[in-house]
Design a protein around this nucleic acid. Structure first.
Lengths: 216, 216
DNA sequence: GTTGCCAGCATACGAAGGTTTAGGTCCTCC
DNA sequence: GGAGGACCTAAACCTTCGTATGCTGGCAAC
């Protein structure tokens, strides 16, 4: 009795706005608003319902009322972050205050609108949020491809990759690892092949993207 | 106990808070508050006065009242950004509203406090802002050093650096530039020396930091 | 027990990287 | 006009890279 939208749940094709509000009229009005500009909309009455559903595969964003049944929008924001769900959020509120808005923005919200808001303001906020999610998804995809390749490396290969992308010569790597230089060369060749790196420069950039040299 | 007086601009030794408020009492109270925790404070009555002065060399931040003589704090924030002055800002206001706070936070403000605020909230915000500025300064310094080296390169050397860090072999670079391979090697050696790069991996990372391969 | 994968090493060789020495032209600045 | 710098090239020489071939051994899965 929850998913009430113009779109079949989970079948979203285009950019999708996920609306969470306990007011049924508001949900409908927002869904209409977004549909009117070609955005798909999925609606939920509570945070729990949203968590039970699956997120769209397309660029999307959340439109959250601050006051939700059982949990505040701000808490929900933190909860999503903890779950590693990094979808842009546009907040709206009927009776919010400045500390509330500041907290939301600090936590990364795209916008924080007071009801009543102008339709255009909401559309602008959502457009920004969708665009942010699109960018995030694109970069996540390429990073994921890298990570997949990276995980196909053996422990030794990872070690060699680390040293090589740090700038060490094969013979130096061999010294560090207590191996013969020829063995390092073999591993290195495997790394290049598995990571699909066409040059050392490539590999260095991959190592950067994977955060192989940052302290932690 | 220790009654440190307000520091004059330019004398700052430690982290410094730059206060801009048209209320003299407020300025004094804030300066005392910051002094009490070991932070130096510089005060101004208007944005114009601040711009006329020189910014501290130490990690610092702005504490701005939204309502300033002649210009709003938000406009001033935008003005600073346009001038390339990227100092963290903590806003405070007596009668602000949510849109105002959201706009400030979107523009990168560290915090937005409503008067009256608790001293601790202000101190926390300022501590965060100072820390952010410290990080920014540190990274700016290393980037600046890189940029200095980069600007000592000749046009040809820049070109070679671009190709090499893209992953091209010397002979390929030579082909692209219509040069003999040996010439590329010479340029490449000069690049390594001038950029103080100890390995190709180093140079690739420098090129990344300098944004040599991003679209523009 | 055979197959497959990981790890390691040696020899060998061609390709690529890097430096030195030694030229040369062109241009600018004093 | 000469000094200096950017730019280009060559020959020579050494190092490093990368790969192939061949072989050993450990280990887990089928």
């Amino acid at each position: 009795m929850n998913q009430k939208s113009r779109t079949k749940a989970g079948e979203a094709q285009g950019p999708t706005v996920i609306i969470v509000d306990d007011d049924d009229d508001m949900r409908g009005a927002l869904a209409n608003l977004f549909n009117s500009v070609g955005l798909e909309a999925v609606v939920f009455g509570s945070a729990q319902e949203l968590l039970a559903a699956k997120f769209p595969e397309t660029p999307s964003c959340l439109v959250l009322d601050i006051r939700l049944p059982g949990i505040s929008g701000l808490e929900f924001q933190g909860q999503l972050a903890k779950l590693g769900i990094d979808v842009p959020i546009v907040f709206m509120t009927g009776h919010g205050d400045i500390p509330m808005s500041v907290r939301a923005m600090k936590a990364g919200a795209v916008d924080f609108l007071s009801k009543p808001f102008r339709d255009q303001d909401m559309l602008d906020a959502v457009a920004t949020a969708i665009e942010r999610d699109r960018t995030r998804r694109t970069s996540m995809q390429s990073v994921q491809a890298l990570r997949d390749n990276y995980q196909s490396l053996t422990a030794r290969e990872v070690e060699v990759m680390r040293y090589v992308t740090k700038g060490l010569l094969n013979k130096q790597v061999a010294g560090e690892m207590g191996l013969a230089e020829i063995t390092v060369k073999i591993h290195r060749g495997n790394v290049m092949r598995k990571m699909v790196a066409r040059s050392l420069a490539d590999l260095v950039r991959m190592a950067e993207t994977l955060g192989m040299h940052q302290s932690a």
